[in-house]
Every structure is written in structure tokens, then in C-alpha cells.
Design a protein around this nucleic acid. Sequence first.
DNA 1: TTGGTGATGCAACTCAATTGCATTCATTTT
DNA 2: AAAATGAATGCAATTGAGTTGCATCACCAA
Lengths: 138, 138
Amino acid sequence: MSMELENVLIAKQVNPTAVRLLVLEYLLKQKAAISLSDLETELHRADRVTLYRTLKTFEEKGIIHTIKDGTEVTKYALCQDECNNGLHSDMHIHFYCTNCKELYCLPKVQIPKLNLPDDFNLQEMSLVARGICKNCKK
Amino acid sequence: MSMELENVLIAKQVNPTAVRLLVLEYLLKQKAAISLSDLETELHRADRVTLYRTLKTFEEKGIIHTIKDGTEVTKYALCQDECNNGLHSDMHIHFYCTNCKELYCLPKVQIPKLNLPDDFNLQEMSLVARGICKNCKK
DNA sequence: TTGGTGATGCAACTCAATTGCATTCATTTT
DNA sequence: AAAATGAATGCAATTGAGTTGCATCACCAA
């Protein structure tokens, strides 16, 4: 429960409670995006609804972003630094591995510019690629 | 209930029942993708489950494709000609209008090639753009 | 007519997401 | 220190989409 973690929350104007610190700590450890159920399994001492609301709060404050990857469940992952108060700039792509069922953020792969018809006003994009991830490919 | 419609189903090896013809007819009229609820509202004389299974069948036979647009509900739209028996080639993008909440297929806008790390094996992609559609922009 | 297969309808269930409300906790005010 | 306030948490219950099981119905073939 380092001072570091607390400061991350405080910087985003989120009250650093015990549960929230645990959730943040867990998020930092992940290589892939997580679901509410993942969180519930890990932090079984906290109520599902509390964890749900924690994720909601984190998202509103720009700490995490949500990803609908085409499966039934919503995934969550830490934002890059540029995100603030729900103004997410997660124009990067997400990669869903059909083998291990994990969803990875690939922040280095920008979504290419689209040739949209002039009469469409683009605000944001979400690109989910599906295939086999590097770990499963080995 | 034209012969045309029947032939579309027969060509895709789908038994042209009354409900299926109505569903196909409805799909052909749409400019945007539809949800099961939309269908239910339109064809209230058919059971929800029947409509659900009709959409499933259509998808398996390559008549329509499903789109997860980031909202809670699955959307359905007619395939281009190239789709067959669930082998969909819908690499085009979808545009979700945040104003009218409609989801449009933009078959002419191909998804650009991505610069994925070598160790990821790409199988398919889904790109949903969000913004204001041409009708709402006026 | 009978038998069989596929299509349809009804009921019920699953599961993630969400809301309401009561309780607890922390911090401030008196 | 006690009371008050607001936020955070926990528990119960609800919603809504998607899905499955099973019985019935429609249609075609023998």
C-alpha cells in the first residue's frame, strides 16, 4: 500500500480508500484488460457492487477506460497519461486473443486515419482486432 | 411477398417461411443495422424467440452479420454479396451515431492495414466509429 | 393417412449490469 | 467528546438481453 498508489488516486481526485487502493494495485499488475468478475475473484473480501462502483469511479476520473471487446463482458484497463475525467484518448487498438481469451491494449498501434464520407462527423473510434496473441503463438 | 425474396433465402439454403420472408423484407428496407427489439416491435405477431432464431439462422447462412457496436445490444445487418455460411468478409467499418443512436454500415470504407507487432497473428477486425451521422448533421 | 423433420411459441433460466436502501466510516462542526 | 454530514460500502433485488428446453404446429414424403 505504497504512497505512490495513494498519490495516483489523489491526483485524479479520487478518495484513496482501502478497496480503491487494492483495485488500483491489481490493475497495475495486469498485462491484459480485466473484467468485473476477474476483480471479484481477486478481491473476494469486497462486495461485487463496491468493485463495480469503484471501476465506474475510476473511469469517470480518467484512471481506467472501458472496452467492449465483442464478448458479453465489459473489460477495463488503465489509461495512458493523457486521459482525464472521462475525456479518453484511447485511440489505440485492442487485441483479443481467441485462444487465451485475454484482451490486450496495444497503445503503440495507432488507429489509421479513415476515409470517411465528408458528411460524417467523427468523434471517436474503437478497433478490436482478433487473433492469436504472442504468448499463445509460441 | 415477392418471388425475389424467396429466392434470396433459397439461394442461401434457408427455408422460406412466412416469418423469415417478413424478417428479410424488413432487413432490406433498413438503412441502419437493427436489433432484436427493433424486429420485435415491427413484427409483433411473431414470437421474440422465433425472431431471435431467425436472425441466428440468417447469420449462420451468411445472409446477415452481427455487430457489437459498444452498446448493450447486438445489431444485425445484411451482408454484402461476398459473405457465405458464416464466413463473413465484413472488414468494413460501422458508424454509430451518438445522436440518433443508429448504427450504419459503411461498406465502402475499408479498414486500413494495421502495423501489428510481428508476434500477433491477426484473424479479423472490427472497427466502430462514433460521431454524428449525415442526417443528424444537417 | 401416417410419419418425420423443421419451424414456431411459450415458459423459464442465466448472467452481467444496475439501482435502492440501509449501514458504516471518516472527517468536520459544535 | 458528541453530534452531524457526506462519502463509501454491503446486501437485496431488479432489469434486460440472450439463451435453452420442451411441447405444439405446419409441411412434405412415403
